[in-house]
Amino acid sequence: MSQDRFHDTIAEIDRLNAQDPNMENKDGKSIPKELLYGQRMSTMLLEFDQNASETLKIAARGQHIQRWTIPRDSYPMDRKGYLMWRTELKKIHGKLVSSIMEKYGYPPEDIQHVDYLINKRRLKTDPETQCLEDVVCLVFLKYYFGEFIAKHAEEEEKIIDIIQKTWKKMSDKGHEAALKMGHSDKALELVQKALS
């Protein structure tokens, strides 16, 4: 029963994320952006923590569920606006995933735990919240960092600042995994500058 409800929950998250109108190219195929992101989160979680709990796996897959429904520009385009946008998104992602879990018969404590993880409560003190944050950062560094560097090529200070902020959120285990990744020469140079 447990495996069935787990698979049904993951399938429902994917079904909703497959509605993303924003596409990303992977191996020559166009894939809805948040569907691909959720799959990358699951893959990275399994690489990073083979013993991840069922609730952590659900939180990782649902981390960005239907993210496109609240565009970034619906909030002021400054740091404060960005933080407000992120807070609102986390609440919505938590509620959506909670409603899916409820539909498939998860107990309230599991639902509450996933909402807690998605909202990143007690980062640095809760091991599963920290694990999820590490996975978020690793997915960014592996799949989106190169694109970020290209987009902000003229703003080296901004890139270094983002690396430093990302690094601060991660655990020692996360740092170790990040440094083992195959980065481009440019990315490595920026990481070294940020960490020196």
Rank of each mutant, 00 (worst) to 15 (best):
D172A: 13
D161V: 02
P107D: 14
H175D: 01
G105P: 01
M23I: 08
D73K: 11
D27W: 10
G94I: 01
K173F: 09
M101Q: 08
E109D: 15
G174M: 01
R61Y: 11
L117R: 02
I149Y: 05
N17A: 03
L179F: 15
K169M: 09
R61P: 00
K80C: 07
E133N: 11
G38R: 02
T55S: 13
K103A: 05
I65Q: 06
T9L: 00
E133P: 00
M41V: 01
P76W: 00
Y37M: 10
D126F: 05
F148G: 02
L141S: 07
E133D: 11
S184W: 06
R61S: 12
W68R: 00
H93Q: 05
N17F: 05
A150V: 06
P21A: 04
D115K: 11
K95S: 12
S30K: 14
G28Q: 03
C131V: 04
M41S: 03
Q3G: 09
E155Q: 15
H152S: 09
G94H: 01
H7C: 09
G62M: 01
K158E: 12
Y104W: 09
C131T: 14
G28F: 02
L188F: 07
T129Y: 13
Y104D: 08
L45M: 01
H183N: 09
G105C: 02
I100Y: 01
S171C: 06
F48Y: 15
E54G: 05
A177V: 08
H93W: 04
K29Q: 15
R67A: 02
G62F: 00
